[in-house]
């Protein structure tokens, strides 16, 4: 009985300590903003790694998701003779939900896991420790640029995702299935509002960017420096990142669009 209580207590304390360490890391990295601005090339390099190299997967999935939305939406709407509303359906689905969420999930898999593995290998090969030895703060030099790069890159990727998805929906709906393109764009413009739909989607994406990148750099920084530890931390990044995105998405949606 006592040992059961002890293991439970130890687990809770471990989780709390982990949360505390991750919050410390987040604040320390965010406070490194001046170092990042002074060494701007570090940030550019990381935006290249996390953002530019993710463009291919983001645009391909955006295109296909838009095309599928166009096809599925048409097959449902045409029963009601309302296929003119296809544009508004595709645009609202993408802007409000799919592009922030899917872009963040892909980002967690594509860029987050890479961040974790890279930082983890740096820790395992004691590069972080030797940086500290020569008087360079690894949190400012390694963590901060990656965190800021992720926070900048994901919202940009999300915007690109939306535009390509809406274009993909038009490709299927207008070019292939024959929805009138004036009503595709007109209905979209009549129902999508800039402040409510576009900006809220981008705010969602910024929140997801902070959470996913935070999880990725923390898992890398905090892992057990063995090959097994790195593989486990990489898995954790993707799993925790995806779960956090999906859970937060509900909360944010309820806050943003829940007031009827």
């Amino acid at each position: 009985m006592i040992s059961f209580l002890q293991t439970t207590g130890k687990r809770v304390l471990d989780i709390l300590a982990g949360l505390g360490r991750s919050a410390q890391l987040l604040i320390a990295a965010l406070l490194g903003v001046r170092y990042v601005l002074k060494n701007f090339h570090l940030l550019i390099k990381q935006i290249y790694v996390t953002g530019v190299l993710s463009i291919a997967i983001i645009s391909v999935s955006g295109l296909f998701i838009g095309m599928v939305l166009g096809l599925q939406g048409y097959s449902i709407l045409v029963d009601f003779g309302a296929e003119d509303a296809l544009g508004q359906m595709v645009a609202l689905t993408l802007l409000r939900e799919l592009s922030p969420v899917v872009a963040a999930l892909l980002f967690a898999g594509r860029a987050g896991s890479a961040l974790t593995a890279e930082i983890g290998l740096m820790k395992a090969t004691e590069q972080l420790a030797s940086m500290e030895m020569i008087g360079v703060d690894p949190v400012k030099r390694v963590i901060a640029p990656r965190l800021y790069a992720g926070i900048i890159a994901l919202p940009l990727l999300c915007i690109i995702f939306s535009v390509i998805g809406i274009w993909g929906g038009m490709l299927v709906g207008v070019e292939w299935l024959g929805v009138f393109d004036g009503s595709y764009w007109g209905n979209m413009q009549a129902s999508v509002t800039f402040g409510h739909d576009v900006l809220n989607g981008i705010i969602k994406s910024i929140v997801f960017a902070i959470v996913v990148t935070w999880i990725a750099v923390f898992q890398g920084y905090d892992l057990i420096p063995t090959s097994e530890g790195i593989s486990r931390a990489t898995t954790k990044t993707v799993v925790y990142g995806s779960l956090a995105v999906l859970g937060l998405d509900f909360v944010l949606t309820a806050l943003m669009f829940g007031d009827f």
């Binding site: 802007l95 915007i159 690109i160 535009v163």
Partner: peptide
């Protein structure tokens, strides 16, 4: 892409 969203999609 942001400008497209603002102008073309939301009809700002």
């Amino acid at each position: 892409a942001f400008i497209v969203l603002a102008m073309k999609v939301s009809g700002l």
